[in-house]
Design a protein around this nucleic acid. Sequence first.
RNA 1: GCCUCCAUAGCUCAAUGGCAGAGCGACGGUUUUGUAAACCGCUGACGUCAGUCCGAUUCUGACUGGGGGCUCCA
Length: 607
Amino acid sequence: MSQILNEKLGKLTKDEQHLWALRHTAEHILHQAVKDLYPSILLAMGPATDEGFYFDFDHSPKGKTPVKISDEDLPRIEKRMQEIIDANLPMIREEVAPDEAAKLFAGNPYKMEWIDEIKKRGEKVTIYWTGEPHQPGSMVDLCGGPHVKSTGEVRAFKLLSVAGAYWHGSEKNKMLTRIYGTCFPSKKELDEHLHNLEEAKKRDHRKLGKELGLFVFSDLVGAGLPLLTPKGATIRRILERFIVDEELRRGYQHVVTPPLAKVDLYRTSGHYPYYKDTMYPPMKVDDDELILRPMTCPHHFMLYKSQSRSYRDLPVRFAEISPQFRYEKSGELTGLMRVRMFTLTDAHIITPPKKAKAEVLAVLDLIDYINKCFGLVKGTDYRYRLSLGDRKDNKKYYKDDAAWDKAESVLREVLVESNAPFFEAPNEAAFYGPKIDVQMKNVSGKEETAFTVQYDFVMPKRFDLTYIDSDGKEKQPVVVHRASMGALERTMAFLIEHYAGAFPLWLAPIQAVVIPIAERHNDGAQMIVDALKAAGIRVESDTRSEPMQAKVRDHTLQKVPYLAIIGDREIENKTVSVRKRGMRELQALALSDFIAQLVHEIEQKTN
RNA sequence: GCCUCCAUAGCUCAAUGGCAGAGCGACGGUUUUGUAAACCGCUGACGUCAGUCCGAUUCUGACUGGGGGCUCCA
């Protein structure tokens, strides 16, 4: 642990190291303040982070009356922190023998657990004093640092929120109280950071989804079950058509299979024991048990098995816009990001092992193409995660060490060869094999898997998938599972946030609004609408009895890409006055030129 | 699921242990307008179920839904 930290610190610039030390110190000031205000509380642990710092407290130690800390208490804690800062206490490092440390932290099981570990390694314990060592009123904590010299150097900090967090991150352990805060070298930088957080909230897909009328939720329908409005459904339809067309172009065959099946299908696949908790309970129908599908793979395997397959037919690439159902825990649901019924742009590529690598490469190429169309930049907007298994964990992962080694090295080679920025994540694989995940950050900086490519050597065995090779012998293929455009719900959430609701023309649910200035221009406006519709443009006219300024304002707020104003002048000159989103100056265009411009822009998929 | 906070009209927000108020929207009318909000009128809400109280939108609890986290995940 400390080794990893040291490596990380070694790579930081001087300024970054200073920031790290400041945040670490702020964290000590926090727990000192909390201990002052709530003497019965126990310190667990807390780090400095890229965004600030946090600390976990046990608010209800054994034998003590539990205390409750809520957001309302933060100002009080901040005030106490400021007093500690004003006192300008020194931060003093000391190395002590584990047994001596044990005396200092007697009665704190969290610290003792840590000290025991250090003792087992035969190392000394590094502690930090806030104030003079071993003096009454001085605070001490187990900590490797680094810190600034004294608390007075912390000039700009803010506590942000209170949260629950499990000790060691395991839901089997006790839930502790976590306090998040942040800290910067100057007030100005802190304010800037807080301002950025506010700005980020404005592009939250849940807020924009409501403001732009893209989707809603209903208490009666249920949590995690979004209803797409006509506008939201339009975006979804564009995405579907786009991905289906692109996949057909790239040699996929699109199929349709039912979103429910017998439970036995999932027993055969082996999904059932792994996914039971997130699957909806079986429905008894006559003598069968049916289940809403949590994934599509077995359906596609049944299609594959419906006839004998020759090596000449392989790879077979079955794709589907596939609704699937997972009972996510209530606390995990978030807008369109995480829902209980989602639509995966799914496919299963069944291929001889030796062609698997080329197939994975082709999938990465497709993903890069899709992201390019979305204006997403590799490395900044998304990065790859090589999600690996754990040979020791036979419960979570199918046991076949040689197959895992092979599969992981194939995926790693693909990433290296395609020059993709990636990082490796142990213990993130599917139970049937390793994956390459395309990771994107949402508006609050949380990283989620957007798209995925998985190498599967287990299902072919389970389902006895075979093909006849050129030597006439029956062989076993491997399966590449992939979601090229991920789950449409989640992808929409990412796109809403990425574009801040100002969709490029090809994705905009309403591409243009024609605005007649007065009632006598309504017919003229309708002619323009008809012409644009004939060219395939999603257009509406706004014939409300409102001033033109009001109409311009409304559609500007709705982030409509193009407004076309029609009045006496335009009708006389046979033009339209075009106002493009985000542009001040207007363009007077012949109708045919306007249409040509729109059609071109849609084809280019540019902004 | 767990910790914590929240829930007032279609939306954004007030107020209150004793008959809930505004702006926008919707609706009806007047107006027919030159690039980010015309005018008049009218409509409309205390999430659900219990409890405390003479009386609950307000206090308590449960449920439902939502936010911030944890766990989990496409």
